[in-house]
């Protein structure tokens, strides 16, 4: 069973996604503290990363990973209104990262995860 780490500061969101992924047959854990979570990344097959978090943003998590040479499939969850702008920057800097709008998770999240790590 593939293990997925959710880094999300909103407990409601994190809880919901965890339940949703577990329902879809994945093993999921979430962390509300991104800085701490980065260190445990090796135990997981995929990272679901919220971008907008206080103090330690999703963006920073990605930088840390690159710096630390950690290569894990990442799906970035975005709730912002202009995903095109942000994703373009991130796609340039972090090729291979997939983006899913939070409001489109019900239809796009599982296909994205499947695409990266399979069922």
């Amino acid at each position: 069973m593939k293990k997925i780490l959710i880094i999300e500061d909103e407990p409601d969101v994190a809880e919901t996604i965890k339940a949703y992924l577990e329902g879809a047959g994945y093993s999921a854990e979430y962390s509300l503290d991104p800085a701490k979570a980065v260190k445990d990344l090796n135990k997981f097959d995929l990272l679901l990363l919220d971008l907008i978090m206080p103090r330690f943003s999703g963006h920073q998590v990605l930088k840390e990973m690159k710096k630390g040479g950690i290569k894990k499939p990442v799906v970035v969850l975005s709730a912002v209104g202009l995903p095109g702008v942000i994703s373009a920057e991130l796609k340039r800097d972090y090729p291979g990262v997939l983006f899913v709008a939070k409001t489109a998770m019900h239809s796009e999240l599982l296909p994205a995860i499947k695409k990266l790590i399979g069922q």
Partner: peptide, 15 residues
Amino acid sequence: DMTHELKTPLSVIML
């Protein structure tokens, strides 16, 4: 941000 503020709870509700 507003979008985020709106979309985050909305995404929870929807999911």
